[in-house]
Design a protein around this nucleic acid. Sequence first.
DNA 1: TCATCTGTACTATTGACAATAATACAGATG
DNA 2: CATCTGTATTATTGTCAATAGTACAGATGA
Lengths: 124, 124
Amino acid sequence: MFDIKLDPNMSIHEQICGEVARLISLGILAPDEKLPAVRETAKALGVNPNTVQKAYAALEKSGLIYSLPAKGSYVSPGGKAAEAVKREAAAELRTAMEKAAATGLERDAAEALMDDIWGKRGKE
Amino acid sequence: MFDIKLDPNMSIHEQICGEVARLISLGILAPDEKLPAVRETAKALGVNPNTVQKAYAALEKSGLIYSLPAKGSYVSPGGKAAEAVKREAAAELRTAMEKAAATGLERDAAEALMDDIWGKRGKE
DNA sequence: TCATCTGTACTATTGACAATAATACAGATG
DNA sequence: CATCTGTATTATTGTCAATAGTACAGATGA
């Protein structure tokens, strides 16, 4: 299901959270779609089930998914999950920008990075 | 010297590195200027000297400062330090942008954040 | 010369946290 | 009734940040 190449520099459950959030935000995981079971995901990733459960618990706390005991875990309905992901992504990007601006990085330099990543044209 | 409000969510030596880097980048700490001694900084921040030394060692490894045993630690000359700070800040900002873009965040949203932080006009 | 300050090095301990291991329980599902 | 589900618990391991304490060698100034 998830094809994550585990980065030893980041905690596993954070990477799982990030990947699920990404898939939700992009619509690859649709609202009310069922996520793979905790144990299944753990097996697929070669990771302890507790670690996956920690990730799922965090995702539920953030409102991205909801879990029904003895049923499964599902993507939150109504697009609320996707919105939450983007909102959080924007918040983190803001923090990074503030940090960069604090070092005196010019706006032009930041703009050049944006061109690089999103493409030079505003709408694509 | 440094007025850092310690954030428990980040490691102390990282915060020291960040603050020194910021001061260098902004020119508040000039090239070849002497930094406060390890023990002095530790006392001022109410922190263990080992922690400060760890920060200074990291700064030297990054090329931001150079240390002369029995003399002191100094900002790297020729503006190389300030350049290094900005280069690293740009690299981190790029990473944050890539992450945000991966969640599907639109360029317009990112641009709005930039207006917020750097001001709407390109040059200030 | 000598006390002091400097960066540097080392060991040890504490606490927090990530991850693992191994169970266990209750509800649903077929 | 066996099985799968989410959930909970306890324990152990390893890593890392931070602290504590100590030590050494070079410089600096009185």
